[in-house]
Write a protein that binds this DNA or RNA. Sequence first.
DNA 1: GCCATTATTGAACGATCATTCAAGTCATTT
DNA 2: AAATGACTTGAATGATCGTTCAATAATGGC
Lengths: 193, 193
Amino acid sequence: MRSAQFDREQVLRSAIEAFVCKGYNKTSMQDLKKATGLHPGSIYCAFENKQGLLVAALEQYNKDRTAEFSDFFAGNRTVLTGLRRYLDYTLDLCTLGGPQKVCFSQQALSELTEQAPAVETVISKNLHDWQAGFIWVFEQALAAEEVNADRSPTARAQSLIMGIYGLRTYAHTHPSAQVLTQLTDQLFEDVCR
Amino acid sequence: MRSAQFDREQVLRSAIEAFVCKGYNKTSMQDLKKATGLHPGSIYCAFENKQGLLVAALEQYNKDRTAEFSDFFAGNRTVLTGLRRYLDYTLDLCTLGGPQKVCFSQQALSELTEQAPAVETVISKNLHDWQAGFIWVFEQALAAEEVNADRSPTARAQSLIMGIYGLRTYAHTHPSAQVLTQLTDQLFEDVCR
DNA sequence: GCCATTATTGAACGATCATTCAAGTCATTT
DNA sequence: AAATGACTTGAATGATCGTTCAATAATGGC
């Protein structure tokens, strides 16, 4: 036996960056070769094909975002301050621009829905995990009486995710940072009211 | 002289349908030939190239959606009932599925942003027109005291567009109609409060 | 009814695509 | 140190892409 020569996580993160920059379909194997440093044959050996690389990249993205998510809600005085910080962070990603402006899962969802069941499956899992995180957040908030019981944690989590989807899409049209800040503030207020 | 043999608007609507089904990049000239009935040469004669066809299709989409928008706010007792009907209609598009589930401008924005300036320009115009429509709606609502003056019509319009973006993205993951209805109700309430 | 002009046709083009594979390279085992 | 077997390499493959263009058909002006 001989173990693989490359760092799988690093390769996947490079692939994510390449996919986000051009979109899945416009990212050629040559682009991926340049981004990951892996030759086509190695990619096919490790991930079967281009779509397999996408699926693996989406899974890596989920792992990274989940870890990131946890950091925001570890050791805060209140969960809502954690949520507020999370939204500020998301806003920063939108404002600063660059490849991170777009959510990889959301982008892949838009581009590939109804076309590749295997991809849709992994994206659905990613989004389900994300939503479960927010449901947990609002359950904590409800238990600590940071929010009232007028709406269920699930309903709040769904509204929040919808809002973040919308915020990131809105950011594509290059509005001013002020507008995005205002939209974020309003979203936080609406979802915690 | 000899005038064109095809109905430009019909061709563009067929092209929109094709683009929405597969996304711009995955829609080949063969697909477009099948959808529009026009041979490649004719398309290039009329629209210069594939991207030109996309731009023309986006302009047609804007015309059609603008006309549709006006219908919702012509002759209502109150503008807010018009808005409510507009949101119900949008919800129906999301729920019923099919190609119309996706907003063509939004899809093109996701797929082509930062890559084709000419496309981004026309999409920005589309979205600006749409937002101007909602600003007008909330100005009317404010004048008729259907909403209070706590937030400006512009701020409300921006939140609403963000919400609709989010709703349509959320719909991609095939949630139940009940969840989408609840999200729509909440959006209407938040934006009119 | 003829001519000039323009639209339409559809085959053909080079470029690029995802994918394959035989040869080369290297770590591990014996 | 030789042999093994998996990983890496990168050129080659056939398919498909967007685009072009010379030939053909059809319209409007005279």
